[in-house]
Amino acid sequence: MAVEGRAIDGPAAGAPAAPDAGSRRPSAAPWLFRLRAPLPRYVGPAFAVGTSFAILGLWEFTARLGLTTPMFFPAPSAIFLAMVRMFAEQHLLWHAWISTLRVWEAFLLAAVMAVPIGMLMSGYRAVGAALEPAVDFIRYLPVPALVPLSIIWFGVGEETKIFLLWLGTFFQLVLLVADDMRRVPQEYVEIAYTVGANQGQVLKDVAFRAMLPGLVDNLRITLGWCWTYLIIAEIVAADSGLGFVIWAARRYMKTPEVMAGVVLIGFIGLATDQLLRLIHRRAFRYLA
């Protein structure tokens, strides 16, 4: 082809040359070096399991070399053997079940109370102005310092344990719910009013549905906080539960049994957290 007497056989003058197809080599693992790149399906679990075993192996190796004192920092194998013995001889599974029931009872009570209160605090500024200072004040109070008061108020029965677990969860959750409600776009509310919805319908059918993905995630996080107060709750005249088992073993310096109880709490929490993550992914596929 000729233009004004000049033959053009290649790209136009001044245009960058097309890169050679052979020079474009895909990276062997592009997901490893790209920001926020999705991992292949089985790579994430493989990394998690591999890293966990590497940490346990390093811990076991350090203990076997005698670099730690078994009384204060036993090897993973000693903790595992202690846990097996506790399952067989000390009814550890039953204690774990009792602790799980206590945590869930307190957590569900906190959630049932915190969700409507947090929505009202964010939806109605007068409610937020009235309640937020008190909520902020109480959530900074250390739960262990309130153990003597809780015994005076509720005695040494089951109510005190549930109250302490509830106390460590409720006031944090109220503010998280209020933040979720605050993130609901104002356009949603205005459109709902435009089509004739009343305030109750806006709260229930528009705001609650819009904030639900974030709310479920915050419930998962606060459930973990509730587990962290278990030991405090179960040292109050308790004769059952993982906190009781850990506290009793501490008296006799049975460090492997103490750490076995702590590790079991971690396993229960991890399993629950992963289950709630799975439910979140299945329920809100559109967020993926």
Rank of each mutant, 00 (worst) to 15 (best):
V135L: 03
V135M: 04
F137Y: 12
I138Y: 03
R139T: 05
R139W: 02
Y140V: 10
Y140D: 15
Y140W: 08
P142R: 02
P142M: 04
P144E: 14
A145R: 01
A145P: 02
A145N: 06
L146R: 00
L146C: 07
L146N: 02
V147I: 14
P148C: 06
L149G: 06
L149W: 10
I151N: 00
I152H: 09
I152E: 14
W153K: 00
F154C: 01
V156P: 03
E158I: 01
E158W: 00
E159V: 05
T160P: 03
T160S: 13
I162Q: 05
I162V: 14
I162H: 04
L164W: 09
L164F: 07
W166Y: 14
L167I: 07
G168V: 02
G168F: 02
T169H: 05
T169G: 09
F170R: 00
F170K: 01
Q172L: 13
Q172V: 01
L173K: 00
L173Y: 06
L173E: 10
V174F: 11
L175R: 02
L175C: 08
L175E: 08
L176Y: 09
V177F: 01
V177Y: 00
V177G: 05
V177L: 03
A178F: 01
A178Y: 00
D179C: 05
D179V: 10
D179T: 09
D179W: 04
D180P: 00
D180S: 06
P185E: 12
Q186V: 07
Q186I: 07
Q186H: 10
Q186W: 09
E190Q: 13
E190Y: 10
E190I: 03
A192G: 06
A192C: 10
A192L: 08
Y193Q: 13
A197C: 14
A197K: 12
A197P: 07
N198T: 03
N198P: 02
G200N: 06
Q201P: 04
Q201R: 08
V202T: 07
L203T: 01
L203F: 09
V206S: 05
V206G: 01
R209T: 09
M211I: 05
L212P: 03
L212Y: 05
P213M: 03
G214E: 04
L215Y: 00
V216R: 00
D217K: 04
N218T: 06
N218K: 03
L219M: 11
L219H: 01
L219V: 02
L219F: 03
R220S: 15
R220D: 15
T222G: 13
L223E: 11
G224F: 09
W225H: 14
C226K: 02
C226H: 05
T228Q: 11
Y229F: 12
Y229T: 03
L230C: 07
I231W: 02
A233Y: 04
I235N: 10
S240F: 08
S240C: 08
G241W: 12
L242Y: 08
F244P: 07
F244E: 13
F244V: 10
V245E: 14
V245A: 15
A248E: 14
A248S: 15
A248K: 14
A249K: 04
A249R: 03
R250G: 12
R250Q: 15
R251W: 13
R251T: 13
Y252D: 13
M253I: 14
M253K: 13
K254F: 14
K254C: 08
T255S: 14
T255Y: 05
T255D: 12
